[in-house]
């Protein structure tokens, strides 16, 4: 339990540092940035205290907001995906999730891809919706969501594959 706690604390801090110092400055094509910090929310233990999980996600987003001077954009988007995560888990992993034996290290690749993609697309959509804050720019919002999502999905699959411990 202690080990698990320290892993998640470390992940929380490392993701913030890398997001702020590295991934916010990629600016591929001038504006496409990956928002990799939501890996913390995606990889949080499935069995959890819901209130604490919501609060941690909110806090994570808020800290990123402090660094990016962006009001409450990241906090809103993170909070929303933290709230809908159980539904996404159920949708992408089905029976494995319902029997409470889900471990992210040994899941099937397609299921993992689906899980990450849904969370990331929803997060990015709300992120850009909040950033533009103007429904008449919906085309621009969707374009940004699509491009940034592809980038984030690729990176998060890469990162989780590299840092996963094979449990065979």
């Amino acid at each position: 339990m202690n080990n698990l706690l320290s892993i998640h604390t470390l992940r929380f801090l490392l993701l913030i540092v890398f997001q702020v110092l590295l991934f916010n400055h990629i600016d591929f094509l001038g504006y496409v940035n990956p928002y990799i910090y939501i890996l913390f929310i995606a990889l949080y233990p499935v069995k959890n205290n819901r209130m604490l999980f919501l609060f941690l996600s909110f806090l994570l987003g808020l800290i990123i907001d402090f660094f990016m001077d962006s009001g409450g954009i990241n906090a809103t988007a993170s909070l929303i995906i933290a709230f809908i995560r159980p539904a996404v888990l159920k949708f992408s992993f089905g029976a494995v999730y319902e029997h409470n034996v889900l471990k992210f290290n040994n899941t099937n690749f397609i299921q993992k891809l689906a899980y990450f993609s849904i969370l990331i697309v929803i997060h990015h959509f709300f992120y850009f919706l909040m950033e533009f804050f103007n429904i008449s720019k919906i085309i621009l919002i969707l374009k940004n969501t699509l491009l940034s999502s592809i980038f984030t999905i690729l990176l998060s699959i890469l990162i989780t594959t590299i840092f996963s411990k094979k449990t065979k």
Partner: peptide, 14 residues
């Protein structure tokens, strides 16, 4: 509660 806090921060920043 948290959502209303974050949305109001966003609105304030806009």
């Amino acid at each position: 509660l948290l959502l209303s806090i974050s949305v109001s921060l966003t609105i304030q920043s806009h």
